[in-house]
Amino acid sequence: MDIFETVFIRNSLIVAFAVIGITIWFSYMLADKLTAGRIHGSAIAIALGLIAAYFGGIATGGSTGVADMALLGGIGLMGGGMMRDFAIVATAFGVQLSELKKAGIAGVISIFAGVIVSFIVGALVAILFGYTDPAAITTIGSGAVTYIVGPVTGEAIGASDTVITLSVAAGLVKSILVMIGTPLVAKYIGLNNPQSAMVFGGLMGTTSGVAAGLAATDPKLVPYGAMTATFYTGVGCLLGPSVLFFIVSAMY
């Protein structure tokens, strides 16, 4: 066993490539055999990844899913921010500028509408659950924007650790739901062209959720959605600890 452990840990990123490859092969087989291709293989692979992350988190008590297990440490690097950003940018290769110009106005509107609408919904839920402290309401609202905007805002305006944790959890639920729910609702919300993909990316904002959800719907739409989605967190980090916090404070 020592030999295995040594080799696996020394070659962690290579092990991750193999493990992810097998997971995807298995997921595409399931998608084909069990759902007759109705649910895309990548959606099943992502769901399996999330399930594995749950058990990894329970088993190790860590915060990075299976990456906390020594033998699967390479998944942390493969799925980390650096590789994710590199691959997201690569998906923009081959995008036609003429298509982008068409979605321009709606794209920008959707980013601001997405941040503000998600914030209002999250803040209302916090109020319904009995929160009256403006810092807490703002932080939970920001968590509904993304799980990055939540803690950024919370720390900037001095919310409690519990509230910040809740905001991360709310953002995570959103991200997971967008990942899994997008292929299921795509038909009903007209998500089948670059224009609606850019609006979708701007409204949802969670980069990982948008990219994964669109990949499972139609991989060609990923760059359009990802392009608007990547601006969303920046806009959220700007508005959350400033304008949105001032508005909530004025009301309470």
Binding site: A16, I20, T23, I24, S42, A45, I46, A47, L48, G49, L50, I51, A52, A53, Y54, G56, G57, S63, T64, G65, V66, A67, L72, I75, G76, M78, G79, G80, M83, R84, A87, V168, L172, S175, I176, M179, S208, A211, A212, A215
Partner: peptide, 10 residues
Amino acid sequence: VVAMAARQDV
């Protein structure tokens, strides 16, 4: 993205 899902704090 699958690797990223596997390292989330679910």
